[in-house]
Amino acid sequence: MTGARVLLMMGCPEIPIQTSIALYLSHKLTNLGFDVTVAGTTAASKLLKVSDSDGYYVKKLVDLDKTIVDIIEKRMDFDICFAFMHNDAGMTYATTMSSISQARMYSIVFGRNAEALAETIEFDCVKIVSQDVHNPVRIKNKLDKVMEEIIK
């Protein structure tokens, strides 16, 4: 899978662990040889940019809506997509991505209502679910296992 194009799709940054997990995942996957792009809303991207002002962890940061348009218009696509979601809108965006992209989908579902939200996902994906809001460790550990599976 080395060289595979990976999209990290960030939604509303209201839940704190999204930013830290996006930074962690981007850095980890980049070091494993993946071509990682992080897409976010304006607010999510600003949080990421301030946290990683020299672009050490995130090499490519793009606008989420523009990325969706580029995929629909077949100007780009990805092999793997990690979609962050903690609300219905995040799930709606991820469902759209699963419809328009060829990428294998991984849904990172977090926040207090994570379990119930995960049950509403109808598209084919691997679900990484944790009810955490502030502590990213549990979801980080789950993602470590997922990454081990991906690089097997």
């Binding site: 509303c12 809303t41 999510a44 989420l64 219905d88 809108a89 709606t92 965006y93």
Partner: peptide
């Protein structure tokens, strides 16, 4: 019309 932070 769906917005990430505001729902549909």
């Amino acid at each position: 019309y769906t917005k990430p932070c505001y729902g549909s």
